[in-house]
């Protein structure tokens, strides 16, 4: 039982980072219609930036915060390129984001080299109800939940957030209000960049990142996001947790080499079950 709870804690922690990446996918897709395959890149860059800042002597907390701000700015640049000229079709934008992801490999290798990096997160164990778990897990889950709630407040309560919600709800109506949908798309990319960066700075102490770690991160995040049809943030968040827990259980009780495959198979089975219940899934 204790073992089960430990796997559960580890799963919820890694699932929380998937949930952050997934939320980034959802925010960008809802506003712009683009599936941003550079979403994993933000996490990788977040990890590397925090690593450099920590090595330069910046304090923990501040270093991670600055790294997240920089990834938000990078998100803005990615959006600027991916949205291209107004009227660029989504498939073209998607491939452009793939291109940007590959471009990031060149940047990361030039600046940091091609070896994996890591840094210490919160050290030590925390015992909750007889289960001891790494403090870093608690930090990750806490940060993810706080971020998610803050986003919900931002999108539901602030004027700017409501304008973003309006863009995802009805672009034509939003434009009639005078809302610049293109600029809102850039803002969505910046938010997506920050979310990815946050996932990266939290994840790097647990598992080292290298220049092409973005594929795995993006696949997990995409799997979680697609769970909510790419448009429902709450379902995407839940999808991230399900995926993380499923992977941790497979790795714990069976074999870690199967973790991603089985977790994805579970997601796929759930999705097919949904599709058979309410007819072919239409987006």
């Amino acid at each position: 039982m204790t073992l089960f709870l430990q796997y559960l804690a580890a799963g919820i922690a890694s699932g929380s980072t998937f949930a952050l990446v997934a939320t980034g996918f959802v925010v960008i897709y809802r506003v712009t219609g683009v599936i941003n395959f550079a979403q994993g890149v933000f996490a990788v860059l977040g990890g590397f930036l925090a690593y450099s800042l920590l090595h330069a002597g910046v304090a923990h907390g501040l270093a991670e915060g600055v790294a997240v701000l920089i990834t938000a700015a990078i998100g803005l640049v990615v959006g600027l390129v991916a949205l291209g000229r107004r009227g660029t079709p989504p498939l073209a934008s998607l491939i452009v984001t793939l291109g940007l992801a590959i471009f990031s490999y060149a940047v990361v290798i030039t600046v940091w080299g091609d070896l994996p990096i890591s840094y210490d997160g919160l050290s030590g164990l925390l015992a909750i109800g007889g289960v001891s778990m790494q403090r870093q897990y608690v930090l990750i889950v806490g940060a993810a939940v706080v971020t998610f709630l803050a986003l919900a407040l931002f999108f539901g309560r602030t004027y700017l957030g409501m304008a973003l919600t309006a863009c995802s709800s009805d672009q034509r109506a939003a434009r009639l209000m005078g809302i610049d949908v293109w600029r809102m798309g850039l803002l969505a990319f910046a938010v997506g960049g920050a979310l990815g960066g946050l996932a990266g700075v939290l994840l790097t102490p647990l598992q080292p990142v290298q220049f092409d770690s973005d594929v795995g991160i993006a696949v997990n995040g995409f799997a979680a996001a697609i769970f909510g049809g790419l448009v429902r943030p709450v379902t995407a968040f839940a999808g991230g947790l399900v995926l993380g827990v499923a992977e941790a259980m497979v790795a714990g009780y069976y074999r870690s080499s199967y973790e991603t495959a089985i977790a994805l198979a579970v997601m796929l089975a759930l999705m097919l079950w949904q599709a058979s219940r309410r007819g072919p899934t239409e987006e």
Partner: peptide, 26 residues
């Protein structure tokens, strides 16, 4: 100029008041 579009096109998941407030974007 402000337009009341055909089919009203409110933001359905937002409240009436939030819909109104977004009208003041400009």
């Amino acid at each position: 100029l402000a337009q009341v579009p055909e089919g009203r096109r409110l933001f359905p998941e937002m409240t009436v008041e939030d819909n109104l407030r977004l009208g003041a974007w400009r």
